[in-house]
Design a protein around this nucleic acid. Sequence first.
DNA 1: GTCTATAACATGATAGAC
DNA 2: GTCTATCATGTTATAGAC
Lengths: 203, 203
Amino acid sequence: MYSGVMSTPDRLIEATRDLLWERGYVGTSPKAIQRLAGAGQGSMYHHFQGKQELALAAIVRTAALLREAADQALTGPGTAYGRIEAYLTREREVLRGCPVGRLTTDPDVMADARLRAPVDETLGWLRGRIAEIVQEGVDAGEFGPDTVPDEIAATVVATVQGGYVLARASGSAAPFDAAVRGLLALLAPPPGRAPARRPSPPA
Amino acid sequence: MYSGVMSTPDRLIEATRDLLWERGYVGTSPKAIQRLAGAGQGSMYHHFQGKQELALAAIVRTAALLREAADQALTGPGTAYGRIEAYLTREREVLRGCPVGRLTTDPDVMADARLRAPVDETLGWLRGRIAEIVQEGVDAGEFGPDTVPDEIAATVVATVQGGYVLARASGSAAPFDAAVRGLLALLAPPPGRAPARRPSPPA
DNA sequence: GTCTATAACATGATAGAC
DNA sequence: GTCTATCATGTTATAGAC
């Protein structure tokens, strides 16, 4: 149940976001949404056409928030390596998994173009944004000249998404953290090359 | 529907394996299993206590097959790098995702200790097996002495699991392949160090 | 806007005939 | 072993009163 300051539509969307994250689309019933939102049957169908439209609103909102949080870690000062490190080590509810990536296992979401689009766009944007940063790192000499930014970006995002899987399987955040540390060790410029962790201070 | 040579229990298990892979536990109904297996209601409940026991048999079998396939790529001749490469690039139905990893997003599977155990054990075994190989690579001088095998192993498995997520989100195997290539590029011993791709031929 | 009633169908199983 | 009832409950709405 949510604080009384939210409107009924907002409470319905928040309830749907939580349930989609925890149980997925197939496992989330209108009744469960109504219960969690503290809204009645008639109320829900007054504000939304049905489960599908409500899920769309929830997914769009979740995608926007994820993108915002990721961008905050990725944009800002620091070396390319440092910003990728910031993204990889930002605070996460690891055992809950990724609220967007999770939807890729939901057949009813993937079969519906409107529900699927925000998922595709969010992860696509994330790979693109990280690839830009890797390219900056190549230009700055942090990463070797043979580095392929799109590939490294895919590896970075996959490590995070897969880290969630390992964490949930084991019931512990440890494998997620291990995967991130392993990736950072592989990414770290060899000592002696270029700005290792911090950009050289202005002269 | 499955070939007539399988017993009814086997057809039920195979049908359940397929449906769990595609739709998860929550999204798989006894009726759907019966339809796909070509078995009646009474038949299913004669051979299995219910959906849960059938799912357990299906998950155990899927886990065993995955382990077998992974072990085949990981065990055998070649350098540590070469065996990890063989594992990462082995044939996969990328867009279907991992039949074991997929279950980690299923709340009813994760809430049931018996259903969850094979998932946890399989991914745990995989990380351990890969860590052994990384350790061999460190001993052989393929990987640097500061390499932490458990971490690299977690990164390798996470890249695969996350690669599936990216592939399914985009509807294309390309991001999976990109993530794998990115990881292999990071893992590759720098030219000049140790056996790059092939063990030195016997003198 | 919210409520209750109703509906048509699916779910997950049990019972007992064959 | 397989089949057809049967059942209580859940799902995903629609209809219409308030």
